[in-house]
């Protein structure tokens, strides 16, 4: 499920490089280190990132 190879993608908001130290999974969340946008992995091969959806009313613990 995981690899030791660094996986590269780009922030859809500011185009900054985003790296994963192992293969991300669909739905995985990440934060852009440059612009701070919350991102979500929507495709794993190749890795594609989109802006994560806003918090919805029924989200939580």
């Amino acid at each position: 499920m995981s690899t030791t190879e660094t996986i590269q993608s780009a922030c859809p908001e500011c185009d900054a490089p985003i790296s994963f130290d192992r293969s991300p999974l669909n739905g995985q969340v990440a934060r852009c280190p440059d612009c701070g946008s919350e991102l979500e992995v929507t495709c794993t091969n190749p890795v594609r990132l989109e802006l994560a959806p806003e918090v919805e009313e029924d989200w939580g613990e």
Partner: peptide, 9 residues
């Protein structure tokens, strides 16, 4: 899951 956060990892 619906979002894979640190907890899920």
């Amino acid at each position: 899951y619906t979002r894979l956060r640190a907890e899920e990892r």
